[in-house]
Simulated assay, not measured.
Amino acid sequence: MAVKIDLTLDCADAKLLAGFWKTALGYVDEPPPAPFRTREEWFAQFDLPEDDSVDDAAWLCDPDGTGPRLSILKVPEPKTAKNRLHIDIRVPGHGSPDEKWARIQAETARLVEAGGTVLEEFKGHHVVMADPEGNEFCVAAASA
Rank of each mutant, 00 (worst) to 15 (best):
V3P: 02
L7Y: 09
L9F: 12
K15D: 04
L16K: 14
L17G: 08
F20W: 12
K22S: 15
A24T: 03
G26A: 12
V28I: 15
V28L: 12
E30S: 15
P31Q: 05
A34W: 06
A34Q: 10
A34H: 10
R37I: 07
R39G: 02
W42A: 15
W42N: 13
F43D: 02
A44Q: 07
Q45M: 14
Q45L: 05
D47F: 02
L48I: 06
L48V: 13
S53N: 11
S53E: 11
D55S: 14
D56L: 08
A57W: 00
A58C: 11
W59H: 09
C61D: 08
D62I: 03
D62P: 13
P63N: 07
P63A: 09
D64H: 01
G65W: 09
G67K: 12
P68V: 03
P68L: 11
P68C: 06
R69P: 05
L73Y: 10
L73T: 09
L73M: 14
K74V: 12
K74R: 14
P76H: 03
P78H: 11
P78F: 04
K79D: 06
T80Y: 02
T80D: 05
A81C: 12
A81T: 14
A81R: 14
K82I: 11
L85G: 00
L85W: 03
D88Y: 01
D88T: 03
D88M: 12
V91T: 15
P92Q: 10
G93V: 01
H94C: 01
E99W: 02
E99R: 05
E99P: 09
W101K: 04
A102R: 12
A102N: 11
R103Y: 05
R103L: 13
T108L: 02
T108V: 07
A109T: 07
A114E: 09
A114Y: 06
A114W: 04
T117S: 15
T117Y: 00
V118R: 10
E121T: 13
V127K: 04
V128C: 05
V128Y: 13
D131T: 06
P132F: 00
C138V: 05
C138L: 07
V139F: 03
A140Y: 02
A142Y: 00
S143R: 13
